[in-house]
Amino acid sequence: ETKSLTLVLHRDSGSLGFNIIGGRPSVDNHDGSSSEGIFVSKIVDSGPAAKEGGLQIHDRIIEVNGRDLSRATHDQAVEAFKTAKEPIVVQVLRR
Rank of each mutant, 00 (worst) to 15 (best):
R24C: 14
G32Q: 15
S4Y: 13
H58P: 01
K51D: 08
L55C: 01
G17I: 01
T2M: 15
G23R: 09
T73Y: 04
E36K: 08
V92R: 00
K42M: 08
D12N: 10
R71T: 15
D31L: 09
S70C: 07
R95A: 08
A84I: 03
S70T: 12
D68P: 04
I20M: 12
F18N: 00
S70I: 05
N19M: 06
G37R: 01
S35Y: 14
D68N: 10
E1L: 08
L5Q: 04
R95M: 07
L55P: 04
S35A: 09
R94S: 00
G17T: 03
K42F: 08
S70D: 04
R24Y: 13
N65E: 02
R94M: 00
G54C: 09
L9T: 03
S70W: 08
H10D: 08
T6K: 15
S4N: 11
T83P: 03
D59T: 00
D45G: 12
H58D: 13
R95H: 12
N65L: 00
D75S: 13
V78F: 04
S15W: 06
S4I: 13
N65Y: 01
N29S: 05
D28R: 11
K51N: 11
G23K: 15
S35I: 12
V8T: 15
D28Y: 10
G53I: 07
A50Q: 12
E86I: 02
S33F: 09
F39W: 06
A84T: 04
G53V: 10
I88C: 05
D59F: 00
A49F: 08
A50C: 13
F18G: 02
V92H: 02
V44N: 13
L93M: 12
D28I: 09
V92G: 01
N29Y: 12
R71S: 13
S70K: 08
D31R: 07
G54W: 05
R71P: 00
L9V: 07
H58V: 01
G53R: 06
G47V: 07
E52A: 12
D31K: 07
F18T: 02
D28M: 09
N19K: 11
L9I: 13
I88K: 00
E36T: 12
R71M: 10
A49E: 08
D31Q: 10
K42C: 08
L69A: 01
R94C: 00
V89R: 12
G53H: 09
S34T: 14
T73C: 05
I20C: 05
F18K: 02
R24N: 13
D45C: 07
R67W: 08
G23Q: 08
N65I: 01
R67V: 14
F18C: 02
G54K: 13
V90F: 04
R11V: 03
I43C: 04
I43V: 09
V44I: 11
G32T: 11
R60L: 03
F39A: 03
S46Q: 10
A72F: 04
